[in-house]
């Protein structure tokens, strides 16, 4: 990939742009605003880089800046179920449904979230897996005392699937103001429009933030097959049958004895 060249050119462009005054300003850019899923898709890497702009008028601050980059996939409704014994068998019993949870979440930061600020601030911006807002239905039948079990299990399973992760200490400052981080998208990446939020923090205070969009989309045959399956389901089914019969017939012809 020509990420390195792209990075150099883009950072030059960032450095040359006119700089305004007073408070810090945050400028970010993505190595690519679109990830296309093709048949050989095994994942992708997104480089997010940017610059903290400050000039002589900017308030001088002791100590370093903190940066948090949050990549969120499109929202999903996800049900978490718990197995319990019923007549000696382990079957799904209680369930909690979480609404508007990200299908994908990676938080990359200079330090672990707990060290960057207070819980209120982290929860407000959704910085860190443990500070994610996971709304449940008001009609939830799970006892209040057990809700945390479902929440923890949900986050644990999402981490295990590789769709939720945290990478503290993975935002590198290349110069005093220029930073970069790399986020990997696995092969199981859901499709949709993602948001990349970059937060500039200093001693627990939010100084600036910026949002960019990232599109993950199937392309070519993959998209066509998906569209056909959903928009013309009967035709898709008939085509699947024809393909299967043809394959069976072909095998019979190829392997026919004499």
């Amino acid at each position: 990939m020509s990420g390195r060249w792209f990075f150099l050119v883009a950072s030059l462009a960032l450095a040359l742009r006119p700089v305004p005054a007073t408070a810090e300003e945050l400028v970010t850019s993505l190595s690519s605003s679109e990830v296309l899923i093709e048949s050989n898709f095994t994942g992708a890497q997104i480089v997010i880089f940017g610059q903290v702009d400050r000039d002589k008028q900017t308030v001088s601050r002791p100590g370093p800046y903190d940066l948090a980059v949050v990549l969120r996939g499109p929202d999903q409704i996800v049900t978490t179920r718990r197995k319990d014994r019923l007549l000696g068998l382990w079957v799904n019993r209680e369930a909690e449904t979480f609404y508007e949870v990200p299908s994908f979440y990676v938080m990359s930061s200079t330090r672990p979230p707990t060290e960057m600020g207070h819980r209120n601030m982290l929860e407000k911006y959704g910085i860190g897996i443990n500070y994610l807002n996971l709304p449940i239905s008001p009609q939830s039948e799970v006892q209040v005392s057990e809700r945390d079990d479902f929440r923890d299990a949900f986050l644990r399973l999402r981490r295990k699937q590789g769709v939720y992760s945290e990478q503290a200490g993975k935002v590198d400052f290349l110069t005093e103001s220029l930073f970069r981080t790399t986020i990997s998208l696995p092969a199981t990446t859901p499709v949709g429009v993602y948001s990349v939020d970059t937060f500039l923090l200093h001693e627990g205070a939010m100084l600036a933030s910026q949002t960019k969009a990232l599109t993950v989309a199937k392309t070519g045959f993959e998209q066509a097959a998906f569209d056909l399956a959903h928009q013309r389901p009967a035709l898709y089914g008939i085509l699947a049958v024809i393909t299967a019969v043809f394959t069976g017939w072909l095998a019979g012809v190829i392997f026919r004895k004499d």
Partner: peptide, 13 residues
């Protein structure tokens, strides 16, 4: 593992 998760709506369904 007693818990399991299933996507019910939104992205990927």
């Amino acid at each position: 593992e007693f818990f399991s998760i299933a996507v019910k709506g939104g992205a990927g369904t």
